Simulated assay, not measured.
Amino acid sequence: MGKQLNKPTILAAGTFVVDYHKTVKHYPSERASSKITGEVISNGGAPFNLLVDLAKLGTHANLHASGRIAQDLDGKFIVETCNTHGIDISQLSYDRAAATGYTDVFTVEESGRHTCFHFAGAGGNFSRDDVKLDTAKPDYLFLGSLGALGKLEAVNPDSGRADSTKLIRDARKRGITTIIEFAPLDRGARLEEFAETLAESDYVIVNDRVAETITETSLYSENIFDPDLARKAAQQILDTGLRIAVIIHSGAGAVYVGADGTFYKSNGYFLPWEERSGSAGVDHAFCAGFINGLMGSQDEAECLRRGLAVSTMCRKDLTPSDSIESMDTCISFCETSQQVK
């Protein structure tokens, strides 16, 4: 699939898996049981979800994938999904030593909250060598999810640093705008573990839960998302040396905190409980909306608004992307509902 001229190009690298979604009556305690009431499969992993969402939003861009899969049924599903959405798969590498990765996603019917069990599979062998920057010549590199990239985050004995750091540094040297989605699998992860990679990056996008964990601060005041507290947490991440901005988002709102001192905040959108089906992929949907605005040269406030609109639409379906429609449709739908105060 050739690169179309007069369009920005985004290369999304990292975790490409299949999500196996199951709805349950309740989430059981250890050694207990719960009835499965429905199941469906979908795209999974931050870069895979992002690219599918960007395609469905009608984003004016060339979409390229970089990940590691296997020649099995799940790998075939990933390839077919990419082909359906016009995503270039020339940098999807096949691994002979492992199966394609997957995630089992259990969503409680009443709350829409989900719990994930992730098998990295072939994705655990994804490395710097799998990403061909000079081949794709991207304007933007999206890496996700930092903290869940296996081999890519291991220290390379030749360079003395993680390959994720080297990848971001190599992209920056080529004038590529770098965007990291940060979501460690280890719930005990701390900011300093990722500081070297973050210091090479332009943008970092992180959800409220992860931001609270890695900065050891609360973003909520009396159970309400507090933009001022989020700003302080974002500043901790900026202090690693990040070059442009940190974006922290939740269902209730989002903030943009720039290295130059700029600060923007936006309220989220209210989606009635009866219209919510799940929450899988909401973080990646936010990334897609934000990057849609970024690539369209929209201002920071508009990028936040788009991110929140797309993440709201995502909640209408059990899967990460099936409820995503055009950017105009997402915004129109959300603006007919009351914004969260």
Results as ranks from 00 to 15, higher is better:
336 T>G: 13
176 I>W: 11
3 K>E: 09
10 I>Q: 04
298 Q>Y: 15
273 W>K: 08
53 D>F: 07
109 E>W: 09
31 R>F: 14
299 D>T: 05
188 G>L: 11
272 P>T: 03
218 S>W: 10
308 L>T: 01
269 Y>F: 15
234 A>I: 03
263 F>R: 03
219 L>V: 03
308 L>Q: 05
32 A>Q: 15
7 K>V: 04
47 P>V: 06
21 H>P: 00
11 L>Y: 13
50 L>I: 08
294 L>E: 10
155 V>T: 14
14 G>F: 13
68 R>G: 05
259 A>R: 13
147 G>M: 01
44 G>Q: 03
156 N>W: 11
305 R>Q: 06
43 N>Y: 06
35 K>E: 15
189 A>T: 01
168 I>Q: 07
256 Y>F: 15
222 E>K: 14
237 I>T: 08
187 R>E: 13
53 D>Q: 08
308 L>Y: 01
69 I>T: 10
324 I>G: 03
201 S>Q: 02
29 S>W: 11
309 A>N: 04
323 S>C: 02
317 D>H: 11
317 D>T: 04
160 G>S: 05
119 F>D: 06
26 H>N: 06
183 A>E: 08
311 S>F: 04
231 R>W: 11
184 P>N: 08
244 I>H: 13
75 G>S: 06
297 S>Y: 13
11 L>M: 08
75 G>C: 09
21 H>L: 12
90 S>Q: 09
39 E>K: 10
96 R>Y: 03
54 L>D: 05
175 G>M: 03
317 D>M: 02
84 T>R: 14
296 G>D: 12
277 S>P: 00
81 T>R: 09
289 G>N: 01
16 F>R: 00
279 S>I: 01
306 R>E: 09
165 T>Y: 14
143 L>P: 01
28 P>M: 07
93 S>T: 12
1 M>I: 06
57 L>T: 02
331 I>M: 08
186 D>G: 02
123 G>L: 01
146 L>M: 12
40 V>Y: 07
